[in-house]
Structures are given as C-alpha cells and as structure tokens.
Amino acid sequence: MADTFAAALDDFTRRDWQTLAPDAVDDPVRVAVVGLGWFAREWALPGIDRSAYTEAAVVCGVDPEVTAAVAAERDLVGVAPDELRSGAVAEEYDAVYVATPNATHLEYVEAAAEQGKAVLCEKPVEATLDRAERLVSACDDAGVPLMVGYRMQTDPAVRRLKESVADGALGDVVHVHATMSQTMLGELGTDHDQWRLDPDLSGGCALMDIGVYPLNTTRFVLEADPVAVFGTTRSEHAAFAGVDEHASYRLTFADGVEAMCSVSQTAQHASRLEVTGTEGRAVLDPAFYEREDREFALERGGSRVGVEFEQVHQPAEEFAYFGHQLLAEEPFYPDGEHALGDARALDAVYESAETGSVVRLDG
C-alpha cells in the first residue's frame, strides 16, 4: 500500500504549478479588491499579503466608512464603486479581484476588462447562466485573463487527491459523496437582511453559495464534466423564502460515475469529500472550509493512511497562483470557460428541482 500511494503523498504541499521562484519577484501584481465583506477583509486581503506574487493596492466598497477604514489601516487607495468603474485610479492596479454579491460581478468585470486589467472573480461567476456567459465573453472580447475563485483547486490536499485518482491509486472511480453545511446566519454573524437571502442578488442560496464547492471540486478531481443532473431544493424557515435553504443533487458522468452531493445553510457545520474506487477510497474531512484544517486519508485493502501535512492558507495559495500565472505569462486552469461548466450545472439543478426530472447537459 505504501508503494502504491507514495507518488501521491510525496512532498505533499508542493506547488506543482510554480516555475517562478518567490524571491525572484521584484514587482508583484498590484490588486484592486472590490467588495469589502467579511471574506475579503478577513481572508482575501491577508491572502494577498501572504503571497509573494501579489500585493494589495486599492480597495473598493459600497460603504464609504468601511472603505476608508480598511484603506487607512493598510495604507491603500480607497475608492467608491463609481470611481473604480470609471477607471479613475486604474494606474494604481494591474488586476481586479471581485468579491461582491453574485449579481454584481458582471458590472465590475466588464469595467476591468475595458481597462485591460486581469480579473480574479469569486465563484459562482454570476447569479444566472446568461450573466455568467456575458461576463466570460467580456473578458474574451477584451483579451484579458480571467480566473474564477475556486480556492479548492490550489489547496495541496485537493491536488494530491486529484493525483491519486489520476494515478489509479483508487482503481476505477465508482462514486463520489460530498457534503457541505453550516448555520449561515449564526456562523457569518449576519442577520436576515443580507444579500444571500435576496434571489436577485444571489441567484439562490444553499446551492449558489456552498453547493458550488462539491460540484466544482468533483469536476476538478475527476477531470470530467457531468452529462446529466438531478436535484431537489427545499426551504423550511421564513428567512429563506424565495431561495433554497437545502439542496441535494446527483451528477452523472459519461463513464457512469455518479456524485451524490448535499448542502445546507441551517445544518450542523460540516464538510466532507469521499471518492470511492474499485480498489480504494480517498477522504477529505473536513474538506471545504477555509477556516478549518483539511484532513486527508487514503484507504485500500483494509489499511488506512492518514497524512499529516503543513496546512496552507487557502486564499494565499489562490492569490499566489493567480499572481504567479500572470507574472510567468501562463494561463489559468480555472478560467472563464471552466466556470461556465459550473454555471450550466447549477442552472440545470434548479431546472431539475422545478420539474422533478433529470436534466441532460450533453445536448
């Protein structure tokens, strides 16, 4: 067993994408951070700081007091949304990180594309499939690089899981089980007046907010896109009227592999990803939250190997990859076209939940 898994587990936290040494960077990518919610303040900005390939230069938010406070604390340029969209301080940054509510991504990405700036847009790429397609087209038409914020793809634990599957350490994959849940209103310190509960801003709640993690991570690990989906959604509490509180969906792939996924905004905090093959099983538990250490284990022939590794700051790894690829003039893997795969699948899950039928994605 040790020999079988050795390649996957050797040098666990290596950055297999890195060709440009961090100490060789004299001029890191200057990033404008758009949207100053809790994630941007507590995770994205520290992640930018930790990366040798990026530095924060501009912050932009809808609340002038918050923007001014963050700018003063970090000695950055602080601007209002209209100023950023107009290009008034465009000479201050090289790239734009968009972390605003889902349905406002398009306007900021379009502005960045018009200014010729590279873009890192948070997931899901937009609130609807149509707007997601317009966003990707805006970057394509302007010829600017677009990366979408799937931070799981740059986490070493997920990359080693993907390698284990590709190397055949599990045999042929048979099925995937994934779950993610939280008590959203309590854990995020928010009341009922927030954008995730507004269908026009979010496009949905459980599925659009956290359902994308099992979906995209499964696609990444299997290196495949689903050909059909079946899903259900439900809401029990008044706060979630008009959006989905819970969602479950099944992804079917061309080779017959199925992924069973469930997410909830009002269940015990948990996340897990389990890939089972004909000869073994790999488990990430916890799996998806940036504020938890990931635990990785491989099982085969009645034996289990748990891997101890140095945990990474997920947004720091994401921004390091973003900045590195720009400086090295290399393409991104989680680009706009990749993100549209999620947008199509999410749209299909909602259609399936409404019609009660399987929805095909392969034409």
Rank of each mutant, 00 (worst) to 15 (best):
K123S: 06
Q153Y: 14
A112V: 04
W195N: 05
D172G: 08
V144P: 13
D130W: 01
V173K: 12
E73Q: 14
G143H: 12
D193C: 05
D172V: 07
E83N: 01
D75K: 06
E73N: 07
A95G: 11
T128Q: 11
D130S: 13
N102C: 08
V125M: 03
Y150G: 05
H192L: 06
T190G: 00
Q153S: 11
P81D: 01
V144L: 09
E110Q: 14
T190Y: 12
E73H: 10
Y93T: 03
D63W: 02
M180W: 05
V98D: 02
Q194P: 00
V89T: 11
A142Y: 10
L146I: 13
V109D: 06
Y93V: 01
M184D: 04
T183V: 13
V158R: 03
H105F: 06
T190K: 13
A71D: 07
L146H: 12
G143S: 13
Y150A: 12
T183K: 13
A118L: 08
D167F: 07
V173A: 10
R159D: 13
V79N: 05
K162T: 10
L76K: 09
E107C: 01
D172R: 15
V144S: 10
E114Q: 11
Y150E: 07
A111D: 08
D94Y: 11
D94R: 09
E114A: 15
R134G: 08
S86T: 01
H177S: 15
L170G: 10
A166M: 05
P64A: 07
G171N: 11
D75C: 03
A142G: 07
G116A: 10
A157T: 13
E126Y: 00
L161R: 02
Y97M: 12
G78I: 00
V144A: 09
A178C: 08
T179G: 10
D193G: 09
A142C: 07
E107N: 00
A80C: 03
V148N: 10
L161P: 01
Y108D: 04
D155V: 14
D141N: 09
T179W: 10
R85H: 07
L135C: 04
T128G: 11
A118P: 03
Y93I: 03
L146V: 13
A68W: 03
E126F: 00
V119I: 10
T190E: 14
P81T: 02
S164D: 01
G87T: 07
S137C: 00
S86I: 02
C121V: 15
M152D: 14
V77T: 15
G78H: 02
M147G: 06
C139H: 00
S137W: 04
R131V: 00
P156Y: 08
